[in-house]
Design a protein around this nucleic acid. Structure first.
Lengths: 223, 223
DNA sequence: CGTTTATTCTATAGTTCTTTGGAATAAAGG
DNA sequence: CCTTTATTCCAAAGAACTATAGAATAAACG
């Protein structure tokens, strides 16, 4: 096989596939798709041990999927460019088409998506301007501060039960979390509905919001 | 990490990446992108030992990238559907964007693409109708018989030098081979030019021709 | 400068993937 | 049925990848 003249080309091509072949790296990419992060932030948000995070980031960088910059003692990582984000989206769509097992894993963990009546990013973008919609960011306060849907209120799931009173009963609540596979917002929607509130999840989370070309707002929690 | 609730989802997603992480499987997919093949044909065309071909096909099938049907003693494999072909194209484009090393590998093996002035599939589709163009399929006669650009003449590279006389000096010759990374057609174009013929390669080979929505013609060599 | 903090490098154990020989299966033909 | 041909299953050796401990580097701060 080594004599096959195209072999080096296919070997290089396979490097991209190999880079996308690890659940840990995919998770890191999904976090990075939400914006720039330090190694430690990535380690926290993706729940990957620090050293392993660093090791995997080296591989992502070697494959030119991410770039890094140093600022003082911190190193910040980000996706190399928009095409990486777009390709990740295509990979996820393609995998969704392909793997019955993936659908099953998604349903098991997120529940049947249909019953939650998710709001698409396009729909939310239109309705943000008007009244009657409250957007709730159920990720950590730290993740919220690093970039959120404009006007969204930060209510980490852990605090949701205790802060139900802060949410309007007459408006529709749109809850979102991180990547397209984040389990947090469906759980939050169920909790809210159990308490008589009208709630729907944002389809694809903040990642799809960003991919759809919408801007993010930065800064500390406002709610 | 195992407690991370999305873990099973990312694991499934990574399965697609892992399936695309092997040069051997990518080569098999590129051959299958030219049409249905038996295990033995694949083994020949991709130059992979038979048993390994079979083993890798099992993995591709497990990932739902290919399907198979049995006819008598033969088992025929094909891409599961058009989306697989489309996604392979996207992967190749993305990898091309990404990997400087890939560009280098391509140039080393195929020569600088620009000097060859490749013809795009769209351009060829338009010009096929008119005169002044002769399309030459430099793959094996067997591969040609399994599907070729309509009207193309079969001249396997090995025979090209001896059959130069059959080619017109007053028309433009478009030579093509298998996948987008096939090294054969650029080599053929150089040979033809060295003998004073006007020749250009088909960009992306027959794979991109097919992906662009053009039909293939089946049957034995006509030239 | 010496110390502290953030991150990376080096080495390694454990795991998973690839390849291949030998046996098994499945269909076709005598 | 027995044989032949095409393909797959099983098992084992070898290669490559993941995760992590321990040492090293790089910047900031006193």
């Amino acid at each position: 096989m080594a004599e096959f003249p195209e072999e080096p080309i296919y070997r290089q091509l396979a490097r991209i596939g190999r880079t996308l072949a690890s659940p840990v790296r995919l998770r890191l990419l999904d976090v990075l798709d939400q914006g720039e992060r330090t190694v430690e932030q990535l380690s926290d948000e993706a729940d990957v041990p620090l050293k392993n995070t660093s090791a995997q980031l080296q591989q992502l960088r070697a494959a030119h999927l991410v770039t890094s910059r140093r600022d003082g003692t911190r190193v910040y990582y980000r996706l190399a460019d928009e095409r990486v984000s777009r390709f990740l989206g295509e990979l996820q769509d393609f995998a969704g088409d392909r793997l019955a097992d993936l659908r099953e894993a998604v349903s098991t963990h997120l529940g049947d998506p249909a019953t939650l009546e998710p709001v698409t990013a396009e729909e939310l973008a239109l309705r943000l301007a008007g009244p009657g919609v409250v957007v709730v960011d159920v990720r950590s306060a730290a993740a919220h501060a690093r970039g959120h849907v404009p006007g969204a209120v930060s209510v980490p799931v852990a605090e949701l039960r205790d802060r139900l009173g802060e949410l309007p009963r007459d408006a529709e609540i749109v809850a979102y979390c991180g990547g397209p596979y984040c389990v947090v917002s469906p759980r939050a929607v169920r909790l809210l509905r159990d308490h008589g509130l009208r709630a729907r999840p944002l389809e694809g989370g903040i990642t799809r919001w960003r991919r759809a070309g919408n801007r993010l707002e930065e800064g500390p929690a406002t709610g």
